[in-house]
Amino acid sequence: MTETLLEVKNLAKHFPIGSVGLTGRPDHFLRAVDDVSFDLHRGESLGLVGESGCGKSTTARAVIGLHKPTAGSVKLEGQELAHLSARQWLPYRRRMQMIFQDPYASLDPRQTVGSILKEPLTIHKIGKPRDRRLRALALLDAVGLNPRYLNRYPHEFSGGQRQRIGIARALALEPDILICDEPVSALDVSIQAQVINLLKELQERFNLAYLFIAHDLAVVRHLCSRVAVMYLGRVVEVAERDQLFENPAHPYTRALLSAVPHADPAVEAGRERIVLEGDVPSPHNPPSGCSFHPRCPERDRVGARCSSEAPTLIERDGGRFAACHLED
């Protein structure tokens, strides 16, 4: 196995809810992320999938230091990042960058593309102003945009092109890890495919490791070598891609896969879909035991244990990890 770059252990992020008065004491906490662990190797891509509110974006933001983790550790090549101050974080920013979801909101509308791309270099005092400008040109070219558009503004580009600018900005510091927060979910299908291909190409060219957050399983399947599935702030399954898609261990993963509509009428007509009952419970007040048990189609096969005891993520046959009593 290749070298481990990032090691996340028992990461938790709880948000205070309710009135934060002058005393600063919140009423209660929203457990957005609870006990999440995974690692990321050089040059690999790990998908983090789940439905809205499952904590995948919060996990990404806690890893990159946008949120201070409530508990747990985030280690970059052995160096603990979870408790660093903004200033101490600075050198590690060059190693880890992020791509955002919304191509319209992630670029400062008042900056030219050139200054957007130069800014990270300025912050980290890399090169002279002229070198930075040249690097910005090279970056535009690397993401498949015309370098001549250096002096244009974001609003003069289409959604897909803006997303490329966002990718170029993340690449400016030549990081080892890119955290991609739903980078293609706001794009149209034909543009989405272009960006997926670009991400694949850049991964090879720069030997990048991706932590790829998405709700679209098909996209993850095309980009990631390993996939972690999250539900209500916890990882319920981690496996190699083919294993996860062909033979999912956790009932939630199975339901999720079965819920995805296939772009093929013949397949759609023939298949039996597992339709989960009810809604995703609120993370304010998660169910006892396994948080999936109220919706789980398999709960009758295990019994009372599901509602009383939370399953832990442990290794199952074939090297995959799942948190389910059914597999015990």
Partner: peptide, 25 residues
Amino acid sequence: KGLLESVPRLFGDASGELFSVPGQP
């Protein structure tokens, strides 16, 4: 044709490059 081919799939080969329609809308 381009639209259908650029949809990422849950089955079949996923290792190669995804088909994409070139250019912008």
